Simulated scan of single mutants.
Amino acid sequence: MASFVKNTTSSADGMIITYETTGQGPGLIIVHGALTDIEEYTELAVFLSGKFTVHLMQRRDREGHCELYKIEDDCEDLLAVQRATGAVLLFGHSFGGLVALETAVLFNPFERIIVYEPGVSIHGNWDWLTVYQSAMARKKYHLAFAVFVQGMGHSPLSKAPRWLATLILRLAIRGKEWQLKKKLLVSNLREHQEVKRLEGSYRKYATLSSPVLLAGGQASPPFIHDMLSILAGVIPASQVMMLPGLHHLSPQNGEVPALLAGHIVEFFDSPV
C-alpha cells in the first residue's frame, strides 16, 4: 500500500494549504470536487503512484468558514502547490476541473491538463440554488443535500418527488459519510454560487495553449456530453474521451478509478 506524506504551503493570502504526496515520477496534482475532500481520491492516487509523484491538494474552506470565498482563491492555492512541488501535470474532477481550467487561464503553469466532467455551466438551471440556501438557513441539511443531488441532474433521483429523494438519500448516506457531506454543505453552496457566476464564461478557455483532455463517462447524462463537446470546440489543443461504464463519481474511492488511471497515464505519456 502506498504511503502518503503530508505537506503544506502558503497561498497568496497567507492561507495554509495542505497536500499529500505519494509515488515517484513526474509531478501530478489532483484537485478534488465539491462535497468531498482528498480522502476520496487516495485510490486513484495509488493507481497513479507507480508512474507519477502524485499530490492530492486539499481545497480550502472544507469547514465552511470562508464567507467571502471566490474561485480565484482556489486558483491561487493550486498555483501555490504547483510552485511548491514543481508539478506540471494536472487532473481536476467536477468542481476541481473548473478550478483547473480557471487556474490554467489565469496563470498557465501546467504543460498538460485532464479535466473529468468539469463543473462548467453553459445552460444551467439554477432554480434549485435558492431552495438549497433556504433549506440550509432552516438547518434542514438532509433536504438541502437532496435538493443539490436533484439539481445537479446526475442521479435517477433527479426526477423523483423531493420527499422521496430526501428519504432515500437519508437512508443511503449515513454515519461518517453523512457527517462529511453535512460538514461540506456550506462550502458546497458557496462553490456553486461561483459556478453560477461563471455561467457562460467558458469562451475564455480559447486562450489555453496546453493540451487538455476532456474526459467523461458514457453513463453520465447527455448534458455532460454536450458540455464536453462545446468545450472541445473552444479549447484549441483539446480532445474528448468518453469512457464506457463510467459516470460522474468514477474518479472517487469505491468506484472505478483503476480504469480512469490507465487513460490518465496514456494521455500524460503520449507524445506532444
Rank of each mutant, 00 (worst) to 15 (best):
M1I: 12
K6C: 15
I16W: 08
I17D: 00
T21S: 13
T22M: 06
G25V: 04
G27T: 02
L28Q: 07
H32G: 14
A34Q: 07
L35S: 12
T36N: 08
T36V: 15
D37Q: 12
I38A: 05
E39F: 11
E39P: 08
E40I: 06
E40A: 09
Y41K: 04
Y41S: 02
E43T: 15
L44W: 05
A45D: 09
L48Y: 06
T53M: 14
L56H: 00
R59E: 03
R62Y: 12
G64W: 08
H65M: 13
Y69K: 03
E72K: 10
E76R: 08
E76V: 05
V81R: 02
T85S: 12
G96Y: 01
L98V: 04
L101W: 00
A104N: 00
V105T: 07
N108T: 15
F110C: 07
V115D: 01
E117R: 04
S121I: 02
I122P: 14
W126I: 08
D127W: 08
A135E: 12
A137S: 08
K139N: 10
K139V: 13
H142R: 15
L143A: 15
L143Q: 14
A144V: 10
V149P: 01
M152Q: 05
G153M: 09
H154P: 05
S155Y: 03
P156Q: 03
L157Q: 11
R162A: 11
W163D: 10
W163A: 13
L164T: 10
A165F: 05
L167E: 07
R170C: 10
A172F: 09
A172G: 14
K176Q: 15
L180D: 13
K181Q: 15
V186Y: 09
R190E: 02
V195L: 09
E199A: 09
S209N: 09
P211H: 03
G216M: 06
A219C: 12
S220R: 08
P222L: 14
I224T: 07
H225F: 05
D226I: 13
G233W: 10
V234Q: 04
V234N: 01
P236E: 10
S238M: 05
Q239H: 08
M241Q: 10
M241K: 12
L243R: 00
G245L: 01
G245Q: 02
S250Y: 00
Q252P: 10
A261Q: 00
G262W: 07
I264S: 04
V265H: 01
V265Y: 01
F268D: 00
S270A: 15
P271H: 09
V272W: 14
